[in-house]
């Protein structure tokens, strides 16, 4: 895939255990090794930028795009503060962030760039960048997940990211920070007792990973609403990361997939998965949702009834 602006995509978990405590549980250690493998592959690639969509960065005023050149702080997770602090100093591609923001506007989406000292970069982004890009070898860009956004906004947000890559002639590692099943245990557990919260979550995670392994990204995108209903805690309106990932990488099933590791993180499904664009395809099996190029806002159906 010489012409694709996407080198490969990664789907990685948001919780800090692989960064802060990989030695405490075999699964957490395997996730850490998978992060390390992905880091090496990024280093060996010809990518210009790491582009992150994080489910642990919620926003309200449209989508927010991190544009501060060198954000620096010591981050502590709200729940897992006892695992330790996460000092960070990252490097963002501000040019990319500003143009991404402009391209969102061109596709009808409200967005804004963020450039403030002390802005709290979310746990998922801190974990991903610390492990995948520890020396800031590549500049990054992080985009938030709007709490009210649904499919149309998320797809268009992905397309605006791809527009920007094409305009700037940059090759990206696309990173989605999200659990598979995201239900955690609501009590403390010993690290050795960690497991996937339920048999149902486990089965669905395996099904999703099978799709990933077969390179069926757009099929997963088409099945997103079902996945949300089955195994996502109803914190937000939809399971959005897979929509953004497909729209950014290309809405098709032409990928080579590899699950580098899968393990529970306090009950949630954590997986490090790589998807690389290829020419072969398994075919389009699950397509029934419409595609969308521009976001035209709420349709005010109640007002017009």
């Amino acid at each position: 895939m010489k012409d694709s602006p996407i080198v490969f995509g990664l789907y990685v978990p948001p919780h800090p255990h692989p960064l802060l405590a990989p030695e405490k549980n075999e699964g957490w250690g395997k996730l850490r090794q998978a992060f390390d493998t992905a880091r090496k592959r990024i280093e060996e690639s010809d990518a210009d930028i790491i582009l992150i969509y994080s489910t642990t960065w919620p926003s309200v005023i449209g989508h927010q795009i991190q544009a501060r050149s060198n954000p620096e702080w010591v981050h502590v997770d709200d729940d897992f503060h006892y695992l330790g602090s996460m000092p960070y100093k990252f490097e963002m591609d501000s040019d990319f962030s500003h143009q991404y923001h402009e391209n969102c506007g061109k596709r009808g989406l409200n967005s804004r760039t963020i450039d403030y000292d002390g802005f709290p970069i979310d746990t998922g982004s801190v974990v991903a960048l610390s492990l995948l890009n520890p020396d800031n070898r590549l500049p990054a860009c992080i985009v938030s997940s709007n709490v009210y956004a649904n499919r149309a906004e998320s797809i268009v947000l992905g397309k605006a990211a791809r527009d920007t890559l094409e305009q700037q002639g940059k090759k990206a590692i696309v990173v989605v920070v999200s659990s598979l099943s995201n239900r955690m245990f609501t009590d403390y557990i010993k690290p050795e007792d960690d497991r996937i919260h339920s048999a149902k979550d486990q089965e669905w995670n395996q099904k999703i990973m099978q799709f990933f392994q077969e390179g069926r990204l757009e099929d997963l995108s088409q099945l997103s609403r079902e996945i949300h209903n089955q195994i996502r805690v109803q914190k937000v309106v939809a399971y959005k990361p897979i929509w953004w990932m497909a729209a950014t990488m290309g809405q098709n099933n032409n990928y080579q997939g590899e699950v580098l590791a899968y393990a529970s993180l306090h009950g949630s499904g954590g997986a490090v998965i790589q998807l690389t664009p290829t020419t072969g395809s398994i075919g389009d099996k699950e397509f029934d949702e419409d595609d969308i190029e521009f976001y035209t806002g709420d349709r005010h159906v109640l007002d017009n009834g």
């Binding site: 960065w57 919620p58 926003s59 309200v60 005023i61 963020i114 403030y116 000292d117 002390g118 802005f119 709290p120 979310d122």
Partner: peptide
Amino acid sequence: KSKSVDPVFPN
């Protein structure tokens, strides 16, 4: 003692 920045309204 630190600085609290609102993640939603940092402006």
